[in-house]
Design a protein around this nucleic acid. Structure first.
Length: 428
RNA sequence: GAGGCCGUAGCUCAAUGGCAGAGCACCAGAUUGUGGAUCUGGCGGUUGCGGGUUCAACUCCCGUCGGUCUCCCCA
């Protein structure tokens, strides 16, 4: 048997995950909270294809992401097709296609899988899920603040607090203004931002080398470093101050803090940028986002639509939740009532009870084998089914059923005709 | 693409050159109408795979495949 077994089980692909019922219950719990928070702020759910023309990603995504990390294939017409490595380009494309007719401002969100061909490691796989939230055509600090608050609202709803996780924000225009005042040429901004983005992960000497390569003198480097270590919001940060004020009024001010180190690696962010980090600093960024001016136009849209948004991956988030013991223990089974079967003769009686309960909308399972009661009850217990209905010869004689509460370890009798009514109030 | 660590029962792991084991899980019974405990028994292995060294290999060596973590890169 063993050789046969080994031969038959084909390993899942590297970096993919199986979701058994318990895992799936957790995933659904997580996604439900994402949906709920987005909808609470009026965001509408969208979904695009999981496969797209390869060129869609060449427009904006990083070079490495496109060429090295995209799963791609060729269709029979020779077209190069990519499994989406992120959701944003799909959303932008959908927006660009209908940008004229869509009523603005636009609040959209999307939850779905994405794929990247890379070495799996902690918090990173080849197949993962992203929750993406965007507001388009509202170029205001309030829009930025709202998007941040959708994220904070979600984090709060799954039991996290500002003690676990902080949303760190910055303004790229503020950074660029600083660099200009230091005498840094705008052609070097990209390299400098990249260096700042990496500063925490690299040795100080490497950081200085990167700045040097971007044309900064020793004096400019020192000034930049002192600016980066100043965590007080500068007086001239008018936009950021408005964002902060709005998040406070929206009720999530304590989740958000200014951090001059946050600049993001991607080029297309133009103003507010933010990242969420666990306070202990153990994990990579939980999510990131910011404001961009021109995504749609780059995709051939007829008009330039600005936007602000973020994307959260499920993997690092799950690690953080596990570490903080915030993942609830959820029953894998949706069943509220298990109807047991006493013996072959009474099977029809049990079937009838189960049918009545289902017609009342109560998720009901019927044990499909006439076996010993203890086995059936043990099954219900292990499945986390809260109630069991027992119908034996004694009950049939007096027209009653026994309803056992598996959690309280109690049981009581109901008249058969009253069972459904009684359970409706208890079990739903 | 580079490197570290690890592959032994369904799962977590022990056995460091000398009979391949434990806990958990699963099945059955103790209890012929009642589930989280307890006790008893049972099922379960080509020690990832291939080669080498040895009287003897889970153990040492080489190769290979797989997992995991880190670097690279990245939201």
């Amino acid at each position: 048997m063993t050789w046969y077994y080994d031969f038959m089980i084909i390993q899942p692909l590297k970096g993919t995950r199986d979701f058994y019922p318990k895992d799936m219950a957790t995933r659904v719990w997580l996604f439900d909270h994402m949906r709920h928070s987005a909808k609470l702020f009026g965001y509408q759910e969208t979904e695009g294809p999981y496969i797209e023309p390869f060129e869609l990603y060449a427009v904006k995504s990083g070079e490495e992401l496109v060429n090295e990390q995209t799963f791609h294939l060729h269709d029979r017409g020779g077209r190069k097709i990519a499994l989406r490595p992120e959701i944003t380009p799909t959303v932008s494309r959908m927006l660009a296609q209908k940008s004229k007719e869509l009523q603005k401002p636009i609040r959209w969100f999307s939850i779905g899988p994405a794929w990247r061909y890379e070495q799996p490691q902690k918090g990173r796989g080849r197949e993962f899920f992203q929750w993406e939230v965007n507001m388009f055509a509202a170029n205001t600090p309030l829009a930025d603040a709202e998007v941040l608050c959708v994220a904070a609202s979600f984090l709060q709803s799954i039991g996290l607090t500002p003690n676990n996780i902080k949303l760190k924000i910055n303004d790229r225009q503020l950074v660029e203004k600083r660099l200009t005042s230091l005498g840094v040429s705008s052609t070097h901004f990209g390299l400098v931002l990249k260096a700042i983005d990496r500063k925490e992960k690299i040795p100080a000497s490497t950081f200085r080398e990167m700045l040097h390569a971007a044309g900064l003198s020793d004096q400019q480097q020192q000034k930049l470093e002192s600016l980066l270590s100043d965590k007080d919001l500068p007086d001239d940060a008018v936009w950021l101050r408005s964002v902060f004020d709005a998040t406070k009024t929206l009720g999530f001010g304590n989740w958000i803090e200014y951090d001059p180190m946050i600049v993001r690696g991607l080029l297309y962010y133009t103003r507010t940028v933010f990242e969420a980090h666990d306070v202990k600093g153990e994990f990579r960024a939980i999510f990131g986002g910011g404001r961009f001016d021109n995504l749609v136009e780059a995709l051939g849209g007829k008009e330039n639509i600005d936007g602000v948004g973020f994307a959260i991956g499920d993997m690092v988030l799950t690690l953080l939740l596990e570490q903080n013991k915030k993942i609830p223990i959820l029953p894998a089974s949706p069943t509220k009532i298990l109807v047991t079967v006493f013996d072959e003769k009474l099977v029809p009686k049990s079937i009838d009870l189960a049918r009545q309960l289902r017609e009342a909308g109560i998720p009901t399972e019927l044990y499909p084998i006439a076996t010993k009661l203890d086995k059936q009850l043990a099954y219900a217990d292990k499945q986390g089914i809260p109630y069991a209905v027992i119908l034996g010869p004694d009950e049939v004689k007096s027209d009653v059923v026994v309803v056992k509460d598996l959690l309280k370890r109690t049981q009581q009798k109901f008249l058969q005709r009253e069972l459904v009514h009684s359970m409706e109030s208890i079990a739903v």
